[in-house]
Design a protein around this nucleic acid. Sequence first.
DNA 1: TAATAAAGGAGAATAATTATCCTTTAAGTT
DNA 2: AACTTAAAGGATAATTATTCTCCTTTATTA
Lengths: 111, 111
Amino acid sequence: MQAMGHINIEELYTQIKVQFSSISLATLYKNINAMVANRLITEVKVPNVKSKYEITKDPHIHLLCDTCSEFIDLDLDVNPLLNEASSKSHYELYGSCIVLSGVCEKCQEKV
Amino acid sequence: MQAMGHINIEELYTQIKVQFSSISLATLYKNINAMVANRLITEVKVPNVKSKYEITKDPHIHLLCDTCSEFIDLDLDVNPLLNEASSKSHYELYGSCIVLSGVCEKCQEKV
DNA sequence: TAATAAAGGAGAATAATTATCCTTTAAGTT
DNA sequence: AACTTAAAGGATAATTATTCTCCTTTATTA
């Protein structure tokens, strides 16, 4: 299986059936939900698009291109922001869902 | 009507029926969607919780308490982050959905 | 006022997710 | 190995959220 990055349930189901052809969608949901509950997997809810799942990693920014639907991670340290947010709010933070949307470079050229 | 802050469809429907008792849910969705498309209203997708709507305002951080479901805005300037994200990715950004989750101060006290 | 367009309403249809209930598989014990 | 119990999986029904269809009502303008 190739590196998955971000994948939605439908895609994941297709992928998994390659190796476990009899798995049912209900089972997939059950397992995904268990893993999300234990923070092994993170669900990223994205406006206008199906939820995406990714292996949980350090907080980071997601970029969504509203034109071509490209969805990528941005390598940019958000810890300073989280620390500031935490100290200002007194929240004990352990999860983040940061999605910025706009138009990617390629789509800007296509005008 | 009191200041709404963040509201989900169900709550909004209840509120609106007070003044427009005959409005249907379909109409509400149509109008909301039109306003979201024109960026008058922003939909905030939140893990484990129904989507929330808010009047569109400058990019900001949302905090979700996973214990009591409190959902609030955090007054913290995120423009530096957005600028950095934009210049690093060459995206033209115009929308943000930033949700940090954890445990609020009150819930931390509750052991 | 008649003609046309725009918005709304009711409920059907669709899509995503969860729940139910039964079967299969696995693990542990004697 | 056979028996017992628990855990996981499968099929499908049920639920929920949202969108679509189609018809009616309201508004606009000639």
